[in-house]
Amino acid sequence: MSVKIEVGAGGIPHNRILIYGLVGSLVLIYLTYLNTYFQTEYFAFFGGLAAVAALIWGTDTIKHLCSYGLGTGVPSAGMIALGSGVIAALFGATTGIFAPIVTIVIAAIIGAVAGIMANHVVRMDIPVMIVSLIELAIVGAMTVLGLAAMACGTFEFLGMITGTVSFLGFTVQTYETSVIGGSIIAVIFMLGAIAIQHSFNACLGPGEQQDRTLMLAAECGFLSMIPVAIISFAFIGTYAALVALVISIVGWFYTYRKYIVLSKRDAYAWLDAKPILEPKGGA
C-alpha cells in the first residue's frame, strides 16, 4: 500500500540544486587530490564536504521521487542509491586521477539500468523514476567516494586497499588494515544510505519545508563525517585527522542548531512538560 505524501511547494528549483550538488561535489572531491599533489594528508576533509554537497542534492531528488506515493519506499531509495553508488565508486577509483568523472559516468549507467528495470520490468511507471535513479546513483557514488577519500586521504584504489600496521617498531603495509580490506567501506555504505534517506523521511508531511529538509540533509552529512574522521585516525596522520574531526564537529554543530531553529519556526507549538492540547471540538 502506498500513501500519498504531501510535500511543501516552492523553494529552490530542483535543477539548480542538481547543478550545485553535482559541480560542488565534483570540485570538492578533486580538492582531495591536493593531498597527492603536495604529498600531505591535510586536505582529506574535502572528501567529506563533497559527500555533504551530494547528500543535499540527493535529498531533494528523493523528495521529488517519493512524492509519487512511495511511503515506505523512502529508506529503500537510500539503499538503492548507495548500492548502485558503491559499485560505481569502487570501479571508478581504479582509474586514477579520472576517478570522480568515471565514477559519475558508471553511476549514471547503473542508475539508468535500475530505473528502466523499475519502470518497464517491475512496471512502477513513475515518470521521474529513471532520471531520479540516475541522480541517486551518482549521489550515492559521490558519497561513497567522498567519505572513502576522507578516511584514507585519497580517492585512488591503491590507497584504499593498502594500510599500514606497526609491528615491533617496523611499519608494514597490509591489505587487512585498509579502508576496503577492513570493510570500512561497509560502514561508509550504511552511513551514506541512512543519511541520504533520513532528511526527507524525517521531515515528510504536509508541513514539509524545503529549507528545513535540506538543512537536515547537511546536518546528516556532517554527522556522518564525524565517525569517518575518527576512523581516519587509523589511516592518516593524527593532525590531518584532527583537522577533519574539528571541521566535521563545527559543521555538524552549526547545522544542527540551525535545524532546531527551523523546526521551532515550523512547529505548531514548542512546549516543555505540558499536557496534551486537545484540538478544539474534541477528537
Binding site: H198, N201, C203, P206, L216, L223, Y268, L271
Partner: peptide, 25 residues
C-alpha cells in the same frame, strides 16, 4: 541519539497543520 532527535523534530514540525505541538520534555 542525534538521528532520533532530528527525526522527532522533523516529523512533528511537519504535522503543525493538525495541531500537534513539539514536546521538548
Amino acid at each position: 541519539g542525534v538521528y532520533a532527535t532530528t527525526a522527532y523534530l522533523g516529523r512533528t514540525a511537519s504535522l503543525a497543520k493538525f495541531g500537534q505541538p513539539v514536546y521538548i520534555d
